[in-house]
Simulated assay, not measured.
Amino acid sequence: MDFNNLTDLMKHLNEQISETLEVDVSKTVRETMKEKIEEEVYSVYPHPSTYQRQREHGGLIDDENIEIKMVGKDTVSVESKRMDDGRNVSEIVETGEGYQYSFPYAGVARPFTEATREELENSGLVEAALYRGLRKKGLDVQK
C-alpha cells in the first residue's frame, strides 16, 4: 500500500490498530477473563447446592455475557455483564454483596476482574495479541 503523506499513513495505521484491539486483543482478554472466572469463582465453590450454574450457557463464562466495546479509537473495554432480573450478577460475585440467598460464599468477594487485570499486566498477553493481530494484517511490527 502506498501513501502520499504522513497523515494518510498514520490514519491507516490507527485503523489497523483499532481493528486489532477490537478483534484480536479483546479475544485474548475475554479468554483470560474466562480463565480467571474459573479460578476465582467456579473452582473455589465447585458444587453449589442451592442453584445450578449456567456456566457457558448463560453464565459468567458465556461469551454473550462478556461485553466487548471500543472506547474511542484506541481503547477496548471487556466487561462481564451477566444479568439476572435486572441484577448485575457479575458485580455481585465480584464484590460478594447483593446475594438474595444465603450460601457459603454469600458476602465473600471473588474478584475475577482484578485477577484478570493482574494476569494481563504481568503476562504480556495483550502485547502479544496486538503484535500477532497486526502481523496478520500484513504489518511488519517489531517489539
Rank of each mutant, 00 (worst) to 15 (best):
Thr28Tyr: 03
Thr28Pro: 09
Thr28Arg: 09
Val29Leu: 06
Val29Ala: 08
Val29Thr: 08
Glu31Asn: 11
Thr32Lys: 09
Thr32His: 00
Thr32Trp: 03
Met33Ile: 09
Lys34Pro: 03
Glu35Leu: 11
Ile37Gly: 08
Ile37Ala: 04
Glu38Arg: 13
Glu39His: 09
Glu40Met: 12
Tyr42Gly: 06
Val44Asn: 03
Val44Ile: 12
Tyr45Phe: 14
Pro46Ser: 06
Pro46Thr: 07
His47Asn: 15
Pro48Leu: 07
Pro48Trp: 00
Ser49Trp: 10
Ser49Arg: 15
Thr50Leu: 11
Tyr51Asn: 09
Tyr51Phe: 01
Tyr51Gly: 05
Tyr51Met: 11
Gln52Trp: 12
Gln52Arg: 15
Arg53Val: 05
Gln54Tyr: 03
Glu56Leu: 10
Glu56Cys: 04
His57Lys: 15
Gly58Ile: 09
Gly58Thr: 01
Gly58Cys: 02
Gly59His: 03
Gly59Tyr: 01
Leu60Thr: 06
Leu60Gln: 05
Ile61Glu: 02
Ile61His: 02
Asp62Leu: 02
Asp62Ile: 03
Asp63Asn: 12
Asp63Gly: 08
Glu64Asp: 11
Glu64Trp: 03
Glu64Arg: 15
Asn65Ala: 00
Asn65Lys: 07
Ile66Cys: 02
Glu67Gln: 13
Glu67Tyr: 12
Ile68Met: 07
Lys69His: 10
Lys69Phe: 03
Met70Cys: 04
Val71His: 12
Gly72Trp: 07
Gly72Asp: 04
Gly72Glu: 00
Gly72Asn: 03
Lys73Val: 07
Asp74Lys: 15
Asp74Gln: 14
Asp74His: 13
Thr75Pro: 05
Val76Pro: 08
Ser77Met: 01
Val78Arg: 11
Val78Met: 04
Val78Phe: 11
Val78Gln: 08
Ser80Ala: 11
Ser80Trp: 02
Lys81Thr: 10
Arg82Met: 11
Met83Ile: 02
Met83Trp: 06
Asp84Asn: 09
Asp84Arg: 14
Asp85Asn: 13
Asp85Pro: 05
Asp85Gln: 14
Asn88Lys: 11
Asn88Ile: 10
Val89Gln: 12
Val89Lys: 12
Val89Leu: 13
Ser90Lys: 00
Ser90Met: 12
Glu91Arg: 13
Ile92Phe: 13
Ile92Gly: 14
Val93Glu: 00
Val93Asn: 10
Val93Asp: 07
Val93Pro: 09
Glu94Thr: 10
Glu97Lys: 14
Tyr99Ala: 13
Tyr99Gly: 10
Gln100Asn: 01
Tyr101Pro: 03
Ser102Arg: 10
Ser102Trp: 09
Ser102Phe: 05
Phe103Ser: 12
Pro104Arg: 13
Pro104Asp: 07
Pro104Gln: 09
Tyr105Ile: 15
Tyr105Asn: 13
Ala106Thr: 15
Ala106Gly: 10
Ala106Gln: 11
Gly107Leu: 01
Gly107Met: 01
Val108Tyr: 08
Ala109Tyr: 08
Ala109Asn: 01
Ala109Met: 02
Phe112His: 00
Thr113Glu: 03
